[in-house]
Design a protein around this nucleic acid. Sequence first.
DNA 1: GACCAGGCACATC
DNA 2: GATGTGCATGGT
Length: 210
Amino acid sequence: MLDLRQIYRKLYAKFGPQHWWPGDSPFEVMVGAILTQNTNWANVEKAINNLKKHNLLNPQKLNTLSLKKLASYIVACGYYNIKAKRLKEFLKFFCQEYKGNPKKMAKTDTQELRRKLLKVSGIGPETADSILLYALGKPVFVIDAYTKRILLRHNLIKEDADYTKVQNLFMKNLKPDVKLFNEYHALLVRLGKDFCLKRRPRCEMCPLKN
DNA sequence: GACCAGGCACATC
DNA sequence: GATGTGCATGGT
């Protein structure tokens, strides 16, 4: 049976570095983390580019925008009403606690910050961990639907494993290395997109097979 | 036209 | 405490 290090080596050999997270700034990564909830990244890029085009990709500016206005700019990424609300909740927190400054935010103890993020309505474990790892460079492993599906199909977890359980599997078996966590999760998403779709898996072609 | 996408909160039992 | 449902666009 493959272990987590072997899986990483195989994925890296097959796909190479993924250069995650796509985004020009920590703040852009944070916005993307919320907008990509259950959503294709291509659509998220459209929404983010639209915000950029209108010179709005800035914590203070977005925070003062009305809910309706904000929603209208992010239509392309779907769930735009609920995501506008979630973004606003995050922006309120980000501006009040850290003046919209990622560096200030990054000074907070990682576990304390994670707890705080999870209290923001609309931010669940994956979004919180994506912000911690990809925007702030904290050694936290991100678990997503692809990760669970891949581990399940390789019998490394059980069907009922929750977020924390899957996350612990990675964090207890790997050194807390930001670069490794970054690349590993990105590679799992890449593998998932190419070979581990929900109903049309291409298991016979899966790079982990050989 | 069906399927899929880098979740989350909330209702209901 | 488990299980189901709403949220929505755009690409394949």
